[in-house]
Nucleic acid binder design. Structure first.
Lengths: 341, 341
DNA sequence: GATTTTTTGATTTACGTACATCAAATTTGG
DNA sequence: CCAAATTTGATGTACGTAAATCAAAAAATC
């Protein structure tokens, strides 16, 4: 049977109250007594029953999700997953609130973070915008002992406890290899459609992509990046233009959102030629395009996994518990038309 | 605040004891009283606090994992993950026991299943061997209200509650498309190395593989399947022979275990030619082979996810709770050298 | 050595549920 | 209508932990 606080008290030769003081780091325990208790805890292998503790404390986990106010399928999906998580709140003892901030606006994000310092949630998940001020604000909160995880977009170099998202450099590299291998011996140019080079994840994907293409597929040249602002209309125009102007395009890598426009452009322009296309994010549109061979592969991150993982990690950090690293690794999904979920 | 049994009792105008009798389906409640209580439960949206209930009951979840006694990397990995889960037992209130049965031996599996009917674990996870007797035994246990999930290898047509494993037909189809696309315009023959055609997952992978190859890559012909019995030595011999005898081989699909032998054969025999190779299961060997370009892609199922998912599902079923379907879907991982974990 | 301060013990209540017991009320059968 | 059976209520204890109170003991200070 698992040891309880009573067993610890008995083993350490102290009272229950003292064990409680040690366990919950309350004051008024002499150093040597504290050590006696800690030894007993270690020797008996005591593990606090978190469920019982939460019951006694009436604990809930107030969590805050900070999201950019972006109007694209991925963010909509992320929001939907957070709503699902809110529905599970009673069971998981969470109390989740989302805050929308203007996209690509570091100062807005910083002021929200500063506001949270007063609200004192027990955990913060945020889609990071990569800027020094944001990093500083995050570090400040971490030093104030707030658990913080970045979601989808990381803030490297900051003190955030965890990143719930995919490795975007690896994603870009994978896209390049798939494209290169699918094209085989063919030579030509590659069009890259991004949202904005101001976003870290897009920059990283491009970085990985160009690196592998340069190293291993020297016959494929990357055209200047098209910045579609994750907007289907803009994407449509840019891709249509590029295809018209450049007959040597053999492949397309769409590393951001706004794929609806890309797909429309491809269907109109590329009926005759055989383009190889890799896109990010599985949505109703990209799924259909994959099935009708307009797109050859989709790279995806599962927003549901990211949200659930962020919640698990924040709760664990709030309780000072360990996380199962392998479980919390967000994988890059590669979908061909055969393995769609 | 979440409603409690007290709120239900007050709302239904009955005593706590009666609410308890209804909740735990104890006898001695008139039909109309039971309905009053059930209405109150529905109206207040009462959800039993599983943590508190488990605390009160001193509940643990005795689970049994039934595994084939196969000596290959994947099964070793699966075992290791189960051991990890056992380490988490105190926290998760599980009590996990594994039973090894001879591989490919339906009757051994059936007798183990029958034995469990007396032991009464609160859930069973099993790597199924596909046979009518096994199906019958599983169905019998399900009718006796045992939660059962199949692990890695499914038992379609049975009443098992859940399958924690990948869609092997999809895996085979994916392998075929990757191979076909990687080979591009090249024509030639494809060698397929399987463990045994007696195993359902191998049969299904082959089925998916041949289907896509036939439909979409008619220039690629499949050679007679090599049955390596998941044994590196046998695999080595078979692949070496095949490569010697057949100069037209342009690709290899290894859908089972024993990849160590395959890799050795490839390195010895295929230095001169450019084979495209797709293999299953990420192990130290296949990982190294992927990195040194001996293998082009690895399809993988994450044993850790499968084990954790099986445990979550069994616990939920034992408590009569819903599972998050999307969370429990085991994905087919596709690894290129760029997105290795 | 007396006094103050700090540390420790003993005890109680609470969290939400399970489960057991016994008494009281209600229904059913004869 | 009475007895027997069934249904319901009231109450208490338990699970493992948190948190509070007050008394007692020990240590530190003068």
């Amino acid at each position: 049977m698992r040891p309880t606080v009573h067993d610890i008290a008995a083993a350490a030769g102290v009272s229950l109250a003292t064990v409680d003081r040690v366990l919950n780091q309350r004051p008024g325990v002499r150093h040597i007594t504290r050590e006696k208790v800690e030894n007993a805890i270690r020797q008996l292998g005591y593990i606090r029953d978190v469920a019982a503790a939460n019951l006694a404390k009436g604990r809930t986990y107030p969590l805050v999700f900070i999201l950019p106010a972006s109007d694209n399928s991925f963010m909509h999906g992320l929001n939907a997953e957070i709503r699902q998580a809110i529905l599970r709140s009673p069971v998981e003892r969470t109390d989740i609130r989302t805050i929308e901030v203007p996209a690509f606006d570091p100062s807005a994000l910083v002021s929200v973070l500063e506001g949270l310092s007063r609200e004192r949630p027990c955990g913060i998940a945020m889609v990071a915008t990569d800027a020094p001020d944001v990093r500083a604000a995050v570090d400040r909160l971490v030093r104030e002992r707030f658990p913080i995880v970045t979601l989808v977009s990381d803030l490297t170099g900051s003190l955030r406890h965890h990143y719930a998202g995919v490795d975007n450099i690896a994603a870009g590299r994978t896209a390049a290899r798939l494209l290169g291998r699918f094209l085989g011996p063919r030579k030509g140019e590659i069009a890259v459609l991004a949202g904005s080079m101001l976003v870290r994840d897009h920059r990283e994907r491009l970085e990985g992509f160009t690196a592998v293409l340069a190293e291993e597929f020297p016959d494929l040249a990357i055209l200047p990046v098209l910045e579609g602002r994750d907007d289907p209309e803009v994407a449509h125009r840019l891709v249509t233009d590029a295809l018209s102007r450049n007959a040597g395009i053999v492949g397309v890598y769409s590393l951001g959102a706004g794929n609806r426009g890309l797909i429309r452009a491809l269907k109109a322009k590329a009926v005759d030629r055989t383009l190889t296309v890799i896109a990010h994010e599985l949505t109703a549109h990209t799924r259909a395009a994959l099935l009708d061979n307009t797109i050859d592969a989709i790279l995806n991150q599962d927003a549901g996994h990211e949200v659930r993982s962020a919640i698990r990690v924040l709760k664990a950090k709030a309780d000072g518990l360990a996380v199962i690293e392998a479980q919390e690794r967000i994988r890059l999904d590669i979908f061909l038309k055969d393995n769609l979920p």
